[in-house]
Simulated assay, not measured.
Amino acid sequence: MNSDLEHRRLHELVDRLESRLNTVQVLAEVILDNAAMREGIPGPYLDDVREAALMEAVIHLSRSNQEDFQHVAKLAQLPLR
């Protein structure tokens, strides 16, 4: 039973991590698109404040992903660097 619980918890962590990795990718693409539009017309769709807030969210998600990856690796008994 304990093994089943650990297996289920590992799957939940992996699913959550995968979802957040996809979110980080989408946010990074939005930031990249915004930066590419700086010199163009009609101009960026995010102002500096909103772009900075978005970057903070990406940093927070990236750190959270790293923590979850380390936890998943520990549960799965994978070697960590």
Rank of each mutant, 00 (worst) to 15 (best):
M1C: 10
S3W: 10
D4E: 12
L5P: 03
R9V: 08
L10K: 03
H11L: 15
S19A: 15
R20T: 05
L21M: 10
L21R: 15
N22C: 14
N22K: 14
Q25M: 13
V26M: 12
A28G: 06
A28V: 09
E29S: 12
E29H: 15
V30L: 13
I31N: 03
I31F: 06
D33F: 05
D33W: 04
N34K: 02
N34Q: 01
N34C: 05
A35M: 11
A35D: 05
A36C: 08
M37A: 10
E39Q: 13
G40Y: 11
P42S: 00
P42Q: 02
P42M: 00
P42D: 00
G43M: 01
L46I: 06
L46G: 05
V49I: 12
V49K: 08
R50P: 06
E51P: 03
E51F: 00
A53I: 09
L54D: 00
E56R: 12
A57M: 11
A57K: 12
H60V: 10
L61N: 03
L61F: 02
S62D: 00
R63Y: 10
S64F: 09
S64C: 09
S64T: 11
Q66F: 12
E67K: 05
D68V: 05
Q70Y: 08
V72M: 04
A73Y: 01
A73N: 04
K74C: 08
Q77P: 06
P79D: 02
P79E: 01
L80A: 04
R81C: 07
